[in-house]
C-alpha cells in the first residue's frame, strides 16, 4: 500500500555511521537454471553479506516467476549500489526495504471490515511509526454486510513487531474486529 522508504533518505538518527545493517530485498526470478546464482553474485560482489535466502519455488507469480526474499547485511552506503547492480544485471527487484523495515509480519482481521471502513483501518495502522502496510487482501464472499476477512502484510522496524501488533490490536478492538495474530516464534 505504501512505497517503501526511499533508500537514499538519510537516516533520521544519523549516528549509526556506516555500520552494516540488515536489509530485505524481494526479487522475482525466471524459473531457469542459474538464475538464483546470478542474482546472488552481484550482492556478494558489492560487499553485501547474505544472511538468508527464501526461495519460494512452490509459489509462482502470475507472471510465471519465482519470488525470492533475500536478507542481507551491508553498510548503508553500499545498499544502493547493490540494488543498481542487480537492476543492471536485469534482475527484477520488486521490493527493497530500507533497513528500518527489517521484519515482516502477517495478520488476519475478521469482522465487519467494510462497515468499519477498511481504508481507515489501514491508515490508522500506518499512522504508527512501527509499521507500514505492504499488502492487503480482502475476502468478503457473503457480500459487504457479512463477516469478512482481510490479510495484512506489515513491514516493521527490526524489533518493533510487538509494537506493530499492539497497534493492530488496538485499532481492531475499537472497531470490534478479531485479530488472528501470527505466532511469534521465540527467537532461535
Amino acid at each position: 500500500m505504501t512505497e517503501p522508504e526511499a533508500e537514499t533518505d538519510p537516516e533520521p538518527d544519523g549516528g549509526r555511521g556506516d555500520r552494516p545493517q540488515a536489509h530485505t530485498i524481494r526479487l522475482e526470478l525466471a524459473d531457469e537454471p542459474g538464475e538464483l546464482l546470478s542474482a546472488l553474485e552481484p550482492i556478494a560482489d558489492e560487499g553485501g553479506n547474505l544472511l538468508s535466502i527464501f526461495h519460494e519455488r512452490g509459489h509462482i507469480t502470475p507472471r510465471g516467476r519465482i519470488p525470492v526474499e533475500v536478507d542481507l547485511e551491508c553498510p548503508p552506503s553500499r545498499f544502493e549500489g547493490i540494488l543498481e547492480r542487480l537492476r543492471d544485471e536485469g534482475i527484477n527487484v520488486v521490493d527493497a526495504d530500507a533497513e528500518r523495515y527489517g521484519e515482516h509480519l502477517t495478520v488476519l482481521l475478521v469482522g465487519d471490515l467494510v462497515g468499519t471502513d477498511i481504508s481507515d483501518t489501514v491508515t490508522r495502522v500506518e499512522s504508527s511509526p512501527a509499521a507500514t502496510v505492504e499488502d492487503l487482501s480482502l475476502s468478503a464472499p457473503g457480500g459487504p454486510a457479512e463477516q469478512a476477512s482481510a490479510r495484512l502484510r506489515l513491514a516493521t522496524r527490526a524489533g518493533a513487531a510487538d509494537e506493530a501488533l499492539g497497534v493492530v490490536r488496538t485499532v481492531a478492538a475499537e472497531k470490534g474486529l478479531s485479530v488472528v495474530e501470527p505466532l511469534t516464534e521465540v527467537s532461535r
Binding site: 512452490g58 509459489h59 502477517t106 488476519l108 469482522g111 487482501s137 475476502s139 463477516q147 476477512s149
Partner: peptide
C-alpha cells in the same frame, strides 16, 4: 482465551493463499 467460533472460511482461504493456516 479466544476460541475458533469467529474464524470464517474466508480467513482460512486468505491464510492458505499466503502459505499459511490458522
Amino acid at each position: 482465551v479466544a476460541g475458533i467460533t469467529r474464524v470464517p472460511g474466508s480467513a482460512l482461504d486468505l491464510a492458505a493463499e499466503d502459505g499459511r493456516t490458522v
